[in-house]
């Protein structure tokens, strides 16, 4: 084994990966450190002391915009989006297991929303809402905007999941005399549950950090990304980084919970 000589491409790829990691986590780490600045600290290094002052300031009333409420909106919106996305993408995935009349037309109609520039989607929804005289709101027009983003993605993923799904299990259930509904809940759903959790997380994340599609249609109140963007233009203290740190921690925690759930759901399918 010792005599094994690594090829040049190994070093090239390793260096590439190293750079990738550096650029991904380097900024995050600096943001982390800077959010722990002392009370007299500024937006840049060096660190002037160490404190939790800025982290606490995020929760202080109106100090740096209204972070807590914006988070609440984004979180609720992301949960609703995740639920809607899961339900409809699973249904669509089930439908597309069979070739039906017009299936390819529906496929392209669904997917095309990924190709249209996001800002145009936002603009279009805004125009549509004013046309029918509805006020734009984070829970109506922004909800629609996010769905144009999450549904096509989730739909594509579900097609992949069902493409790999072995119909033999359903046949066995059907042979035992199970109805379509029983077959779905007792056999199909438990087998795709782990993937469904993944799709839910995807829907949640796409919505939670969506900016462009929300930008013109969130109404009088901001979602979290819009709020943060607003702050970058007028907040000049490390509170900005503190905010970033907190949302990042939240995202990691969420990923952790999801991975744990997926592990739990697929732990039994030893194959």
């Amino acid at each position: 084994m010792d005599k094994y000589k690594r090829s040049l491409s190994y070093y090239f790829l390793a260096a590439f990966f190293g750079l990738f990691v550096l650029f991904l986590y380097g900024p995050m780490l600096s943001m982390f450190l800077l959010s722990l600045q002392g009370t007299k600290g500024t937006l840049t290094f060096p660190m002037r002391g160490f404190s939790f002052y800025w982290l606490q300031s995020v929760f202080a009333e109106q100090r740096v915009g209204n972070f807590v409420e914006a988070f609440g909106r984004s979180f609720s919106l992301a949960i609703i989006i995740a639920l809607i996305t899961v339900v409809f993408s699973v249904l669509a995935g089930l439908a597309f297991r069979k070739q039906f009349k017009g299936s390819s037309a529906i496929f392209y109609l669904t997917i095309s929303s990924l190709i249209v520039p996001s800002i145009l989607v936002s603009l279009g929804i805004g125009i549509l809402f004013s046309l029918i005289n509805l006020p734009v709101q984070w829970f109506s027009s922004a909800l629609a905007g996010h769905l144009t983003w999450t549904l096509p993605f989730a739909f594509l993923i579900m097609l992949g999941i069902f493409g790999r799904f072995n119909p033999a299990y359903e046949e066995a259930a059907r042979d035992l005399g199970a109805s379509e509904t029983t077959t779905f809940w007792e056999v199909i759903f438990p087998l795709i549950a782990a993937s469904v959790v993944g799709v839910a997380l995807l829907g949640f994340t796409l919505s939670y950090d969506e900016f462009t599609r929300t930008s013109l249609i969130s109404g009088a109140t901001n979602t979290l990304p819009l709020e943060i963007f607003g702050m970058t233009t007028n907040v000049t203290s490390p509170a900005l980084y503190a905010l970033g740190t907190l949302t990042t921690i939240f995202s990691f925690a969420l990923i952790g919970v999801t991975l744990f759930t997926i592990q739990f759901l697929s732990r039994r399918q030893i194959k």
């Binding site: 033999a168 299990y169 046949e171 066995a172 056999v187 438990p190 087998l191 399918q269 030893i270 194959k271």
Partner: peptide, 10 residues
């Protein structure tokens, strides 16, 4: 009874 057993893996 199927060739590939088709037992429910979960």
């Amino acid at each position: 009874v199927f060739q590939q057993f088709n037992l429910f893996p979960h």
